[in-house]
Simulated scan of single mutants.
Amino acid sequence: MSASHPIVLALDFDGVVCDGLREYFQTAWRAYCHIWQPDDLTPIEDLAPKFYRLRPVVETGWEMPILIRALVLGIEERKIFQNWVTIAAQIIIEDALDAASVSAIVDDIRDQWIATDLDSWLGEHRFYPGVIERLREELASSTDCVIISTKEGRFIKQLLQQQGITLTDQQIYGKEVKRPKYQILKELNAEYGEKTSIWFVEDRLKTLEAVKKQQGLENVMLFLADWGYNTIADQQSILDDDRIHLLSLEQFTQDFATWVPQQTK
């Protein structure tokens, strides 16, 4: 892939555009309390910092209260990093839960929070420095911008509208589309043509690796956002990767030519 700039810029939302760690924890804690009904409804002091550190293991929203449960049960952070999928599955089975019902609880809690105190909910989010400005710049350019996220599209719209950015339904692929991100990229290929330059910025390495394995997506340039919810180990593992490029926040806010410097030679 040698294009100097994208025709389509595809961005993940949480961990790339928006930092929702504080909202994640508050929603996860409320969902945990709803499901497990602890005697003390105030989280212990070190629970939030542990949750923030472990955020990279979470792929979709239903896992958030399950992560809280794992921490309350005293499972070591190291073990959670190493075996999260197995640990989450064990908790689901042992407590007779299922991902769909937990996901519904998380969404309902968000909906109630938004409906009763929108300002408070919005205030628990922050946008990474310079990202909104860069997004505005690209929306005003010839580049087509889309959001591909596991977050509900309606929540994404609420947050962007707070910043004065309104995207159409065709520009937001949220959790409700119920398709993996690589499938959405394939659909974009079908819409624009397989020779189209598509650049995809994501903070979850597992997602980028899944895209990399797909036939027909060789034209998609992949970027791991180092400011998002990933680890130093994730970042180091791709330093010699020929498809996945490590991207800094400083690079993101600059001209596309800085994203992959070797292409300018």
Results as ranks from 00 to 15, higher is better:
C18M: 13
I184Y: 10
E59S: 15
D39S: 12
I35Q: 05
N189I: 00
E76R: 14
E191G: 00
R179Y: 05
S141Q: 03
G15M: 11
R110D: 03
V220N: 06
E138N: 06
N230I: 02
D107V: 11
L159A: 07
I44M: 07
W62R: 06
P129I: 01
T143G: 02
H245F: 14
L222P: 09
K212Q: 14
A115H: 07
G15C: 07
V260H: 12
S248C: 06
Q236F: 04
L217A: 02
E138M: 07
L139M: 08
L47M: 14
S2H: 15
N189W: 03
A10G: 10
G216C: 05
S2E: 14
Q82V: 01
L122W: 01
L54T: 09
K265F: 10
Y32A: 00
L249E: 09
D203A: 06
Q215H: 14
Q158T: 12
I105P: 04
W199T: 01
R204L: 03
T264L: 06
I66L: 15
P180L: 05
A10S: 15
W29S: 00
A3R: 15
L249P: 11
Y24K: 09
K265G: 03
T143E: 01
D14Q: 04
P65V: 02
V102I: 08
D98L: 03
V260T: 15
A10P: 09
Y32L: 00
V106Y: 02
S149Q: 04
L188Y: 08
S120T: 12
L239F: 08
I114P: 03
Q112P: 02
L73N: 15
A3D: 14
A115Y: 04
